[in-house]
Design a protein around this nucleic acid. Structure first.
Lengths: 170, 170
DNA sequence: GTTGAAAAATTCCGCCG
DNA sequence: CGGCGGAATTTTTCAAC
């Protein structure tokens, strides 16, 4: 039982390539995988239709755009049941780019981007701590991001001797 | 002093659009921003050259691909100085998609994707806990992701009355 | 920043195995 | 049906202004 969605090896290979470089042309992917460009097109349309592909994003260097601080916040709530309410308030804060309802020590896990420490203080003290239901927060500032990559979804038993290797970009 | 990189409002608007939908055609962005397609092309080339644009990613629904669990790990090291070594070992574990050197309670913050609880146990117990230098870990499983969006980089004083609004996709 | 034209990619559709 | 191939359309890309 597979949620009714059938994904074969070709689908996974296409996704795997595009997850690393979403700008690669369908014609080029087609050449790598020894199928026609039209096939890539049909497969991607299916993958978008069933919601496996959620979107296409640009990955940017936040530091170079003036957002020097990336921090994770562990948030304690007064009551776990306040989650929906608090999430809605967090959504209004543009610096919050991610929020998860989590198991473990904290009730909510959030990621924020700030320009500098003054900006972080403003976000924490004036915005987040003011949300009703939030008891306290713990802050983890990222000093270095050493890994940031897509999940490898092509399993070993799937890609036995695929002649795929990286080519030069564009 | 701005790191020597000059980014104007138009650059930010282009980035802002592409961060939400990296597949939008340059010609369409050009129409929205009332400039020519060539200008978008030149701006993007500059933004890629200076490293502000790091890449183009596909965003996928990991759950639908069989990876039901997304978890964050707080990792305690025996000594903070072991960071580089441990990071190198973490990089060998494909389930680890993100790792940060952080301030606060933990030394390293990592994000992992697993197929199910058995898979998570294997990753935690057989892979991560076996890395020399790691003292112990704390696991936060994401039960719901309620926010996941790009950072809004166009500041209010930048985009005063831009006639920009979302258009239908493709 | 713009224009315009060549090169390339996307997208669609009829056909085949 | 799933994949192929080709043709129409759109986009990218680049040089000259």
């Amino acid at each position: 039982m597979n949620k009714g969605i059938e994904i074969d090896r070709l689908d996974k290979q296409i996704l795997s390539i595009l997850m690393r470089n979403a700008k690669m042309a369908y014609t080029e992917i087609a050449k790598k995988l020894f199928v026609s460009g039209g096939t890539i097109h049909v497969r991607m349309k299916k993958l978008e239709d069933v919601g496996i592909v959620k979107g296409y994003n640009l990955s940017v260097d936040h530091g170079k755009l003036g957002y020097d601080i990336c921090a994770y916040l562990g948030i304690y709530l007064d009551k776990s049941s306040l989650y929906e309410e608090v999430a809605k308030e967090l959504e209004k804060i543009p610096e919050v780019v991610e929020a998860h309802y989590t198991t473990g020590l904290y009730n909510i896990f959030a990621r924020v981007f700030c320009k500098d420490t003054a900006h972080l203080k403003e976000v924490l003290h004036d915005k987040i701590q003011n949300i009703p239901g939030i008891q306290r927060t713990e802050t983890f500032i990222s000093l270095q991001e050493s890994i940031n990559r897509p999940l490898e979804i092509v399993s070993e038993d799937d890609d036995e001797e695929i002649g795929y290797h990286e080519a030069e970009e564009r």
